[in-house]
C-alpha cells in the first residue's frame, strides 16, 4: 500500500518575517527556507507506518520552484522512497494545489494521503480538505494519532476545539497532521547521503493541463499594527494596582 505525502517549501519557522516596503509581499530573498513543519510530521508518520509494515512505499510530492527539490530531498533523507516535483514559479492557491495533487493521486494510486494541516506561510489550512473533496474521499484533519486497520480503514484521533474527537475513516482517505502526531526525526548523515541516490521525477505544472490561474488578487501585504511598548512593574502588588487603576481590567 502506497502513501502520498505532499511537502511544501516554506520560510523557516524561526525566521523573522519582513514585509517588503512596496507592500507586494514578504521578503524571501536570502531567507532560510525549510520543509513546512506540519509536513515533516506527516513524513515522519508515513515513514513510521512503513517501518511498521503497514505501508510499502512513501512518495513525497512538492509543488513549487526548482529549489523545492531540496525539500523533497529532506523527505527522502527522513525515509521517503522517492519524490516528485511539480515545477512552477507561480505561487499557487490551495485550490490549484489540490487539483494538481488530485492528478498525482490518480496517476499514483495511493490508498492514503498524509499531509500537513497548514502551511505556515499562507496559513490557509485548506489543501487537505479540498483534495479530499475533489477525490470524494473521507477526511480526518488535525490528527494526533493514526492507527491503520490493514488497507481497510484508519482510526484517527483529531485535535478539536473542545478536546479530542476519534473518527474511523475508510481508505482511501486524506489525513492531515497536527503538532502532537509525532516528533519528526533528524535525518542522519548516512541517510542524507543515501537520499541523494533516491529518484526525483520533475514535471512542469503546465503539463497537467489544469486551470491553475489565481482566483484571488493580492491588493497589498502590509505590516500589522505594532503594540505600543509597555512597562516593567516592580512587584505583584504594583501589578494589581496598575491593572485596577490604570488599565481598568480588574
Amino acid at each position: 500500500m502506497k502513501v502520498l505525502v505532499p511537502v511544501k517549501r516554506v520560510i523557516d519557522f524561526n525566521v523573522k518575517v519582513r514585509v517588503k516596503a512596496d507592500q507586494t509581499g514578504v521578503d524571501l530573498a536570502n531567507v532560510k527556507m525549510s520543509m513546512n513543519p506540519f509536513d515533516e510530521i506527516a513524513v515522519e508518520e508515513a515513514v513510521r507506518l512503513r517501518e511498521q509494515g503497514a505501508l510499502t512505499e512513501v512518495v513525497a510530492v512538492s509543488i513549487g520552484p526548482a529549489q523545492a527539490q531540496d525539500t523533497i530531498r529532506t523527505a527522502l533523507a527522513m525515509g521517503a522512497d522517492r519524490g516528485l516535483l511539480i515545477q512552477t514559479d507561480q505561487d499557487l492557491e490551495p485550490l490549484a494545489v489540490a487539483k494538481l495533487l488530485k492528478a498525482v493521486v490518480e496517476a499514483e494510486g495511493p490508498k492514503l494521503v498524509l499531509m500537513g494541516k497548514q502551511a505556515i506561510d499562507g496559513d490557509n489550512n485548506a489543501v487537505g480538505q479540498m483534495l479530499a473533496a475533489l477525490l470524494d474521499w473521507p477526511q480526518a484533519t488535525f490528527a494526533s494519532k493514526v492507527e491503520l486497520d490493514g488497507e481497510k480503514s484508519a482510526k484517527v484521533v483529531r485535535e478539536v476545539d473542545g478536546g479530542l474527537q476519534t473518527l474511523e475513516v475508510d481508505l482511501p482517505a486524506v489525513i492531515t497532521a497536527d503538532l502532537r502526531l509525532n516528533e519528526p526525526r533528524y535525518a542522519s548523515l548516512p541517510n542524507i547521503m543515501k537520499a541523494k541516490k533516491k529518484p526525483i521525477d520533475v514535471k512542469p505544472a503546465a503539463d497537467y493541463g489544469l486551470d491553475l490561474a489565481p482566483r484571488l488578487k493580492v491588493v497589498k501585504v502590509s505590516e500589522p499594527p505594532k503594540r505600543g511598548g509597555g512597562i516593567k512593574v516592580e512587584s505583584a502588588a504594583d501589578l494589581v494596582m496598575k491593572l485596577k487603576n490604570e488599565a481598568g481590567v480588574l
Partner: peptide
C-alpha cells in the same frame, strides 16, 4: 474559524470550485 469551520469550509469550497479565504 473554529476547528469545525476549518474542517468543513475548504471541503465545501472545493465542491463549489471556488477558492477559500481563511481567517
Amino acid at each position: 474559524a473554529t476547528s469545525v469551520g476549518k474542517n468543513v469550509a475548504p471541503r465545501i469550497a472545493a465542491k463549489l470550485d471556488t477558492s477559500q479565504l481563511s481567517d
